[in-house]
């Protein structure tokens, strides 16, 4: 195992996949000469050249569409959209082309693109740089959505996504690129479907993904220490298709569920996981499922207001205490 940062893990996945297949290319704003806003493509430009490591103009819909078109001919683009807020501008090509072309061509064409983008809220970036869009992507048929919570997942998910024949959206997080973690020394391909039990528990399941997995883990420690509640933490690294079996299995074991999401609650991950619970294991429940979400506001600049708008481990602890009445 190597203890590396998440950006290094992403860079290593790029490097290995580009070395493996000459049709793998990387493209995005400032990813080449500069090496990427979050360093995730550092060194690739010098190694693979400007034909394969492409600094794009600031034209999100244009270069995303270009990558999709190239993928029709067997090119495997890894497209970095610098911030998920800018991915809105590329939604036309992602939604209308990449996600639908296999279907509407009767299986003749496919768009094996990888679109990576940091979602999530960092510090004081204001309303237009703090969007959390995973809920939008996971609602699109024909698109896979994964979201890493660790360097190991970031590395292995990207490698599998490059090889997969479907379009894959990888929802990263601005605050997590410097997070350290163990990554296998040998090549590793992470599954694109499923979930992982990050902490075993018996009393309640905390469902998290990406950054909220870490809030769940901290909350689980606090609940164990102060209240004797043993929470299971399930990492939903795949948001589409959701791991219905994994959700069912954990709820059938703990009989209680709290879903923790960084985004606003409406039409979100929490709502969707609750629907799965209702549909598949309602009678296993000992309490109504709860969700911990952001407030339904554009993210403010002021640091105290920003903190108030977003959930953290304390909100998770509070939700579980309410559920247990302790």
């Amino acid at each position: 195992m190597a203890d590396i940062m998440m950006w290094e893990a992403i860079m290593r996945a790029h490097d290995e996949e580009m070395a493996n297949d000459p049709m793998v290319i990387a493209m995005g704003e400032d990813i080449g000469v500069v090496g990427g806003t979050y360093k995730a493509t550092t060194g690739l430009y010098d190694k693979y050249g400007e034909q394969r490591v492409i600094d794009t103009p600031i034209s999100e819909n244009g270069y995303t569409g270009l990558g999709i078109g190239a993928s029709f001919l067997g090119v495997r683009p890894i497209i970095e959209i610098m911030s998920v807020n800018f991915a809105w501008l590329a939604m036309d090509q992602i939604f209308n082309t990449a996600a639908k072309v296999r279907y509407m061509s009767g299986g003749q064409l496919q768009a094996p693109v990888v679109i990576r983008s940091p979602g999530g809220t960092a510090h004081q970036l204001g309303s237009q740089h703090s969007a959390r869009m995973e809920k939008v992507f996971m609602g699109i048929a024909g698109l896979r959505v994964v979201t890493p919570s660790s360097p190991r997942q970031a590395y292995g998910l990207l490698k599998s996504a490059v090889r997969c024949n479907d379009p894959v959206f990888i929802n990263e997080h601005e605050l997590m690129y410097n997070m350290r973690g163990d990554v296998p020394e040998d090549e590793y391909f992470h599954p694109l479907e499923g979930s992982e039990i990050t902490r075993e528990g018996r009393d309640v399941t905390l469902f998290g993904y990406n950054i909220s997995v870490h809030w769940c883990l901290k909350a689980a420690e606090l609940l164990s220490k102060h209240h004797g509640i043993e929470a299971e933490v399930v990492d939903l690294f795949t948001l589409s298709p959701l791991d219905r079996e994994g959700i069912r299995n954990s709820v059938s074991k703990t009989h209680r569920a709290v879903i923790v999401e960084e985004a606003e609650p409406a039409v979100g991950v929490g709502a969707e996981v609750m629907a799965v619970i209702n549909e598949e294991c309602f009678f296993e429940l000992d309490a109504a499922p709860m969700r911990v979400s952001a407030l339904n506001v554009p993210i403010p600049y002021n640091h105290a207001m920003e903190k108030a708008a977003l959930p953290d481990e304390n909100n998770v602890v509070e939700a579980v205490r309410n559920m247990f009445g302790v």
Partner: peptide, 30 residues
Amino acid sequence: FDVANRFMGGYALVGGPFPLAAGIAKGIQM
């Protein structure tokens, strides 16, 4: 769509094929 004849499709979003065409050209170039 008729990919065997390299007819890469008709698309219903006005202007949608502009970047796709550039991308196909990128694929040809590679």
